[in-house]
């Protein structure tokens, strides 16, 4: 019987120490042990990219990595992208550009887009499409996904978080 291993992983800025079977995949560890179900399993064969997370800041497919390989490393999932209750620029851009239909590919698309923009802050449209080569959208919504990434690269994301709050308060005040 294969013996378990103790791993310590920092996931979304929190350190976890767990005993895991060597065969446990990173995506299973994230979803089933840590409850981070924002990271999705699509194809489970390294093709679709739905399970994309960052390992020490670069994108990897968490269905094609063992949890034991992440021991001592830092993992960021889609659940760690928003900071202080504020969406990350890419999340905001996907929202504004309507860069999703069913939403299943979205966490992976955003994590890969973030990695792409870190390596190439000002990609051309062709470079964005190449950079998202490992992420499949079965709603065929690529056009708006590319537009969302481009808008972040161009700095044209409209930050409406303050506006929403103000509007909400006004509405609430009006009702009560």
């Amino acid at each position: 019987m294969a013996s378990s291993k103790t791993i310590t992983v920092e996931v979304d800025d929190v350190r976890y120490t767990d005993d895991v079977e060597p065969r446990l995949l990173l995506v299973q560890y994230l979803r089933e042990r840590l409850g981070k179900t924002g990271t999705l399993v699509g194809c489970d064969t390294t093709n679709c990219g739905a399970c994309t997370v960052h390992l020490d800041g670069v994108s990897v497919k968490s269905c094609t990595m063992l949890a034991v390989q992440a021991d001592g490393h830092k993992v960021t999932t889609i659940e760690g992208m928003a900071q202080d209750g504020k969406l990350a620029p890419l999340q905001e851009a996907f929202h504004q550009c309507h860069a999703l239909q069913c939403g299943f590919c979205t966490p992976g698309m955003i994590m890969q887009s973030a990695s792409l923009l870190k390596e190439n802050p000002h990609p051309t449209e062709a470079e964005i499409r190449d950079g998202l080569e490992g992420n499949l959208c079965r709603c065929t919504g690529y056009q708006n996904i590319v537009a969302a990434v481009k808008s972040v690269a161009d700095g044209t994301v409209y930050d409406d978080s303050g506006v929403s709050t103000t509007a909400g308060e006004t509405e609430t005040a009006g009702v009560s």
Binding site: T46, G49, T52, L55, V58, S59, V60, K61, T64, M65, Q112, S115, L116, G131, E133, G134, N135
Partner: peptide, 9 residues
């Protein structure tokens, strides 16, 4: 080779 995520790993 493959795609960016695979090339990272």
């Amino acid at each position: 080779v493959a795609d960016p995520q695979v090339r990272h790993r």
